[in-house]
Simulated scan of single mutants.
Amino acid sequence: MTRVFLASHNAKKLAELSRILAPHLPSVQVLGLADVPAYDEPVEDQPSFEGNALLKARAGFAHTGLPTLADDSGLCVDALNGMPGILSARWSGPPKSDEHNNELLLAQLADVPDERRGAHFTCVIAFVHAGGELTVEGTMPGRVIREVRGSGGFGYDVLFEASDRPGVTTAELSVEDKDAISHRGHALREIAPQVAALLG
């Protein structure tokens, strides 16, 4: 059994990583933060997705000794000059709340016409292991709609229509359909064979 640590509490991210890694590493066991002794997680104070992903992966590797993956991702809205970006999870301030973040985003875009509501999700995944570090980036272009729709996914999925699946939000897609087009899916599929080769 190959153990890989994903520096996250998010059960949906752990399940997603397990699904995508499995074809490359059939014996992989993905552990999350709940599966290892608690440690002080670093403050995400870097100015880029890559910087924050590396910060989390380095901390995870230092504290667990396990090959560690970490991601930083967010929604970049054209009309907001790329924001919320790296601030996506805490856009509406503490405490973290998907509902409050979505309410604030809708309010900020209330007067923006449909043709200027373009946006994209970005995900950078960092992998830190005894032999070094690597990062990959995935994106999912689309647009922000005007009302919350769907019950799947998390974060801004209820407000986002991907260019590859117009007419439905990413919160209305099946898990398989979302994996196929998502920023995290693209990044995970790129990094999975590299992780398998390094650990195999």
Rank of each mutant, 00 (worst) to 15 (best):
A70W: 03
V148W: 00
A79W: 02
A53V: 04
R117F: 03
N81G: 13
K13S: 13
A192N: 13
D157Q: 05
G155L: 12
V124A: 06
A197S: 11
S27F: 08
L188E: 10
I181C: 04
T64W: 12
L104Q: 14
E50C: 07
V144C: 08
G132S: 03
R116C: 07
V136A: 10
D157A: 04
N101Y: 00
H129P: 11
V136Y: 06
I191R: 06
I86P: 00
Y39N: 03
E133V: 05
L54A: 07
G74T: 08
K13T: 10
D177R: 12
G118S: 09
E176M: 00
P37M: 01
S174V: 12
L6R: 05
F61Y: 15
K12Q: 13
A171E: 08
S27H: 13
G93C: 11
L14Y: 10
M140L: 13
L104P: 05
L54H: 07
L69K: 01
D45H: 07
D78P: 08
A197C: 09
G93Y: 10
G85V: 01
N81W: 10
L33F: 00
A187S: 09
H100D: 11
E103N: 15
T64G: 14
Q29W: 02
A197P: 03
V195P: 05
A107P: 08
D164N: 11
G60S: 02
S151T: 15
L31Q: 14
W91C: 01
A197G: 14
L75E: 07
T169A: 08
R189Q: 09
S163L: 13
L199P: 02
